[in-house]
Design a protein around this nucleic acid. Structure first.
Length: 884
RNA sequence: GGGCGUAUAGCUCAGCCGGGAGAGCGUCUGGGUCACAACCAGAAGGUCGUGGGUUCGAGCCCCGCUGCGCCCACCA
């Protein structure tokens, strides 16, 4: 006796055991094997701050599907897992955690703080990756990496040095986005804009030397007035032309500032006069540079007013705003206040309103670096899926700005730049420096800043493979095959990996990028903690199994589009898994001793049904393979699942039942079993990338073997298994069976009441099909007996016409249905068929079509037309008969 | 303001190279059936957002309009 399967599929009972088995056998482990072709993926490293959410589940399911598919195809597959130190989110998180314990980050100092972060990393850093195992990810855990491990850090330092030496990294005073709470600069990408209510304060600036004359400006941030170094008007603005070059007195201060002309000013907006605050506004900064204006920084790092602010010094920016407005009012310089809604930049992590400030920062010069990255996508060297992502990509590469890479954080890669305390020399070094190379002094200070977290992730595809060392892995697996990631980090990450790949490796980091969308809740909202609408993938797995979750994330989806998460969809997939389970159980029950094996020699005498299912399966092999090669995961799954359910289970298993239950023809029974088993095994293999657990369990149980489906070979299209004639014949029989089933439902004849069924047709091909393939017809049509005949026994004779004899009474098909309904139906049918014939006629008489369409298409259309004509004639005849 | 996407059944979405409108869920009808009630058989339900154009032929290609979503910019 072979092993048995339980009656319903219980994922919880097998998933853990199977994953352990795969681990124990080292199936996920990749080696450098030059006799095989490599296929490699690096996992987008999840942040160490988080736990598994639906986005990760989707991302990793897609990767796992590709990896498992390629592994079965015989590639040496490597999937590198890992995590990201996520400098700013982690720092915020740990800072808050410490705060709750009453510990202040600044009090304990940098070194002590970092100890806490490392401890935190140790505790939570591996959480996600261990959770990823639950969904079946077949990553090479021996090669798990962390963006701040020794190897990645070395790569970071090396890249920094290389870029610096090429002059592509520079330090500069630039206006940057400053987060007053996190005390760090932010890249543009880290700033979000929120619409908030604000005010427009209209303020009069007195003109120097012209008593009683004022220039009115409008501002949303009156406190920045203290940093004003000019007013600006448009050079073409008639209203203010005479003012250009004059001075105004800056209220609340003892300074006078000039009025300048700059085309940046929009005449239509506000009063047409802009106060210029170069130190606290990016546009003003640019204007200031053009006009050589002084930059006056009026803020401390925590957004309180600094010592330059006189009586306002020490006040918070908002408190100062109120106080200053009050003072302006007293002096009669405040003209009016308007309430407006405007966009305010906030830090995407902590939602603090950012403050533009001038700071010395490190930048990467982008102009030259971006070019190969843009070209690679433009000339197809790197393929973006879906295609439409190209536009988004170019939108960014065409408008590239230098990348501010320094962050005033503690957690992250410290910038490898050192300043000599004695001679002041700046040295950049990949190895820790202990003395100044210029003067030999040992008093040197490393730059306190750390690098933008994306600086290290940008190197991920090669730093994980050992770069800057020339490892065999790097040589063999780079460039990686495909990157699977969400479209939301195309700018943060994808582009930066691409230019980093070209810059440091001279090659693209991957050949294709497969984008997916966001997983939203059932109402289409983003899943978020604040809304509390997130769904924990682990809960779904506990309840429905990993396979069902995976399938539900893949089914009916398309690359790059957002999707909604529905429990009903998971349930449908769970039910499908159970279906597969039971189909397999059926096979096992009919061969408890496993006497017929899938690999056995092919039988000689196939029935039409066998040839039909083998041929159809053969086709699905090709289609699913093609879809997977083309990254159409959703289409591949839907097609395959549909085939398994609707074709294999619903039709073939029903057809084959009599042959398995009646044991009088041992030879035929064996053939039936062989076919069923082979088809089942093939389908299981195709399904394995999508549903790894259940397919593994069945694969082993059905064959009573330990060998894993994971390392079995992917099915190939087999020319000798193509039976177009039988596909057509059996297709006809199925058509007829459907007709009968339909009729019976309409007639209210219970399937349990077996009937004698006559198949009547003048069409020899149809008769032949039924004679040849009719053995399973009776079962499918719930008939006790089937007769095939040419002459009409008093009724119609279309291609699918049938007569059902039920019990004592002869009940011709047509008579059983309400005649009026039937006439209506036939009229509709007639109209449809007439249309089809005309359409077909038009096509076939069209010279362009005949000339341009492929020959197969024309042939197909011809046979279609013939079919339609026959059916139309039959329908007309039947209508005429009935209407009598 | 600039860019991108999207509009298909009651709901959520597929629909490849332009040639017969699809799936899942839901609804309705029938069925204790010997793999599966987490089931089976059947049915109903669509002007493919709208107006034009190209084509023998458009859900698909082109143009206009409308609705929705996202990204970038950030007018002080």
């Amino acid at each position: 006796m072979g092993k048995q399967l339980d009656k319903t599929y219980d994922p919880a009972a097998i998933e853990g055991r199977l994953y352990q088995k795969w681990l124990d056998n080292k199936y996920f482990h990749a080696k450098v094997d030059k006799s095989k072709k490599p296929f490699s993926i690096v996992m987008p490293p999840p942040n160490i701050t988080g736990k598994l959410h639906m986005g990760h589940a989707l991302d990793n399911t897609m990767q796992d599907i590709l990896v498992r598919f390629k592994r079965m195809q015989g590639y040496e597959t490597l999937w590198v897992p890992g995590t990201d130190h996520a400098s700013i989110s982690t720092e915020v998180k740990v800072t808050n955690a410490l705060k709750e314990k009453g510990i202040d980050k600044h009090e304990i100092g940098r070194e002590e703080f970092l100890k806490h972060v490392w401890a935190w990393k140790k505790e939570y850093g591996g959480m996600i990756t261990s959770q990823l195992k639950k969904i079946g990810s077949s990553c090479d855990w021996d090669r798990e990496r962390f963006t701040m491990d020794e190897g990645c850090s070395k790569a970071v330092r090396q890249v920094f040095v290389n870029l610096y030496n090429k002059g592509l990294i520079y330090q500069g005073n630039r206006i940057i986005n400053w987060c007053p709470v996190c005390h760090t600069s932010l890249s543009d990408a880290e700033v979000e804009y929120e619409e908030q209510e604000g005010h427009f304060w209209y303020i009069n600036y007195p003109i120097v030397g012209e008593e009683g004359r004022y220039v009115m400006i409008a501002t949303t941030r009156p406190e920045t007035l203290l940093g004003d170094t000019a007013l600006a008007v448009n050079p073409d603005d008639e209203r203010y032309r005479d003012l250009v070059g004059k001075m105004v007195h800056l209220p609340l201060t003892d300074r006078d500032i000039p009025i300048i002309a700059d085309s940046y000013v929009d005449r239509e907006f506000g009063t047409g006069v802009v106060k210029i605050t170069p130190a606290h506004d990016p546009n003003d900064f640019e204007v200031g540079r053009r006009h050589n204006l002084e930059q006056i920084n009026i803020l401390n790092d925590d957004a309180t007013m600094n010592d330059l602010c006189g009586k306002y010094a020490g006040m918070d920016r908002y408190a100062a705003r109120e106080a200053m407005v009050e003072d302006l009012k007293k002096q009669g310089l405040l003209v009016k206040v308007e309430t407006i809604r405007h966009n305010v930049g906030v830090h995407d992590r902590c939602h603090t309103t950012v403050e533009p400030m001038v700071k010395k920062q490190w930048f990467v010069k982008m102009n030259d670096l971006i070019r190969p990255a843009a070209d690679a996508v433009r000339n197809g060297e790197i393929r973006l899926i879906p295609d439409s992502m190209k536009s988004t990509y170019f939108n960014w590469t065409d408008n590239i700005r230098d990348w501010c890479i320094s962050r005033q954080l503690w957690w992250g890669h410290r910038i490898p730049a050192y300043t000599c305390d004695e001679c002041g020399a700046l040295t950049v070094s990949a190895e820790p420096l202990t003395k100044c190379p210029k003067c030999g002094s040992t008093h040197i200070t490393q730059d306190p800043d750390t690098l933008d977290t994306w600086f290290s992730s940008a190197l991920w595809p090669f730093s994980t493979l050992g770069w800057p060392d020339k490892t065999p892995e790097l040589e063999y697996f780079y460039p990686t095959s495909v990157l699977v990631t969400g479209y939301d980090i195309i700018f943060f990450w994808v582009i930066r990996m691409i230019f980093s790949g070209y810059e440091n490796m001279g090659q693209a980091p991957f050949k294709s990028v497969l984008f997916h969308g966001l997983v939203r809740d059932s109402k289409g909202r983003k899943m978020s903690k604040s809304l509390g609408n997130g769904i924990d993938p682990l809960e779904v797995i506990d309840k429905y199994g990993a396979d069902a979750l995976r399938a539900s994330l893949i089914s009916n989806t398309t690359p790059g589009n957002d999707m909604r998460f529905y429990y009903s969809r998971v349930e449908a997939c769970r039910n499908f898994a159970n279906k597969v389970w039971n189909a397999s159980r059926f096979v096992m029950m009919n061969d408890p001793d496993n006497a017929v094996k899938a690999g056995d020699k092919r039988p000689v005498h196939f029935t039409d049904a066998d040839k039909w299912i083998l041929s159809r399966t053969n086709r699905i092999v090709r289609e699913v393979t093609d879809n997977l090669e083309n990254f159409d995961l959703g289409i591949a799954y839907d097609k395959l699942a549909g085939f398994i359910r609707d074709v294999f289970c619903d039709w073939y298993i029903e057809m084959v039942k009599p042959r398995l239950y009646q044991t009088n023809d041992a030879q035929d029974r064996r053939t039936a079993l062989w076919t069923t088993k082979n088809v089942l095994i093939t389908l299981l293999k195709l399904l394995h990338p999508f549903m790894p657990f259940i397919t593994e369990e069945i694969f082993c149980t059905v064959q009573d073997a330990e060998e894993s489906i994971m390392i079995s070979s992917w099915p190939l299209y087999d020319e000798t298994l193509s039976f177009p004639q039988e596909e057509e014949d059996v297709g006809r029989v199925m058509e007829a069976v459907r007709g009968i089933r339909n009729a019976r439902t309409q007639m209210n004849v219970a399937p349990s009441r077996k009937a004698k069924v006559y198949v009547v047709s003048e069409n020899p091909a149809v008769r032949q099909a039924f004679e040849k393939s009719g053995q399973f017809f009776a079962t499918l049509a719930f008939a006790s007996e089937v007769a095939v005949q040419a002459d009409k026994t008093g009724i119609d004779d279309s291609a699918v016409s049938v007569v059902i004899r039920d019990g004592e009474i002869d009940m011709p098909f047509a008579d059983l249905v309400d005649i009026r309904l039937e006439i209506e139906r036939l009229k509709k049918e007639e109209a449809r068929l007439t249309g089809e014939v005309m359409r077909s006629q038009k096509m076939l008489s069209n010279e362009k079509f005949l000339a341009k369409a492929p020959a197969a298409k024309v042939e197909e259309e011809k046979s279609k037309q013939k079919n339609y004509q026959d059916m139309l004639a039959a329908t007309k005849q039947r209508l005429a008969d009935l209407q009598k």
